[in-house]
């Protein structure tokens, strides 16, 4: 995950020239590394967890084995899948909304000076700001239902998606733009054939950051305001001191988000990066 895709300012360029590239590299290390190393890495993590649980570091720190067993039990009795379904619905709605709106606004800000002047500062502020503070406010207006959760997701996901779209378009390779102009591309052709394809890696990086922020938002909303889904599982098992179940819920949502992001990247490469296939 790159730094610069997340940064609102000029320093983005200092990191790797083009935003998104560091992200692609990081993911490459994640996916492309030798299988053996990854297995060793996972094994080491589980072993450390197990040992820490055996010591134990805290009465509230279950071993890896106990957590895995709790996970299996929760999958078997259906409580975990049900909680996932409840959590994922607002996440999917919120991220979809944010993606459509965010990419639209972001690209518009990148293309139009007027839109940039009006909207970019707002998104720069929102992206750097702790938007989580506004989640209690959302509950006022929309209660503790689905709408609140969707809004919580949008609050966290929209700014980063919009800002990435904006930066992606503003950082399009000027040489390609000159090329399109010299070969008589119309403004529309320039947008569709040059700007959007060249900006798409950073736009997709923004979408992944948005998904990641959306996960944070939906969990936060469930912990803070609406006791449902994974958040409820965490709170409930904590309240009755079922620590293995609590850890299993947390670990499962973290692993799930990591897998989701990896899948999104694979899909992106498969659908939109013909030049990267098989390399």
């Amino acid at each position: 995950m790159s730094s610069n895709v997340h940064s609102p300012g000029a320093a983005a360029a200092a990191v790797s020239g083009r935003p998104g590239r560091a992200l692609a590299r990081a993911a490459g290390a994640l996916v492309g590394g030798p299988m053996l190393w990854r297995l060793a890495s996972v094994a080491l993590f589980c072993l450390t967890w197990e040992v820490a649980g055996r010591i134990p570091v805290s009465y509230a720190f279950p071993t890896f084995g106990a957590t895995a067993a709790a996970f299996a039990a929760m999958v078997a009795d259906g409580s975990l899948p049900a909680a996932f379904a409840v959590t994922l619905l607002p996440l999917v709605i919120g991220v979809t909304l944010s993606a459509v709106l965010g990419v639209g606004i972001g690209v518009l800000m990148g293309l139009r000076r007027g839109a940039e002047w009006i909207a970019a500062p707002v998104f720069i502020v929102l992206q750097a700001a702790p938007m989580a503070a506004l989640i209690p406010l959302v509950t006022f207006v929309y209660g503790i239902g689905l709408t609140s959760k969707v809004l919580a997701v949008c609050l966290l996901a929209l700014p980063v998606i919009a800002l990435n779209g904006y930066k992606a378009v503003r950082n399009v390779n000027p040489s390609l733009l000159a090329m399109a102009r010299s070969f008589l591309a119309s403004p529309w052709q320039r947008v569709v054939r040059i700007i959007l394809p060249d900006a798409s890696p950073v736009i997709f990086a923004g979408l992944r950051l948005g998904v990641s922020a959306g996960f944070i938002g939906v969990i936060l909303a469930e912990l803070l305001i609406t006791p449902t889904g994974i958040g409820d599982l965490i709170t409930y098992h904590r309240s009755i001191a079922n620590y293995a179940e609590m850890y299993a819920s947390i670990a499962s949502i973290i692993v799930f988000s990591a897998v989701t992001l990896a899948v999104l990247q694979t899909v992106e490469v498969a659908l939109f990066r013909p030049e990267k296939k098989g390399t």
Binding site: I253, A258, L261
Partner: peptide, 27 residues
């Protein structure tokens, strides 16, 4: 070190860390 840690750093950099706060609260 990169190969052993890289995967976990990449997972946690974009993980919903808000879910971990309850754990911190009990620990």
């Amino acid at each position: 070190a990169d190969r052993l840690l890289g995967m976990w750093v990449n997972v946690f950099v974009s993980a919903p860390l808000s879910a971990l706060v309850p754990v911190l609260m009990i620990l």
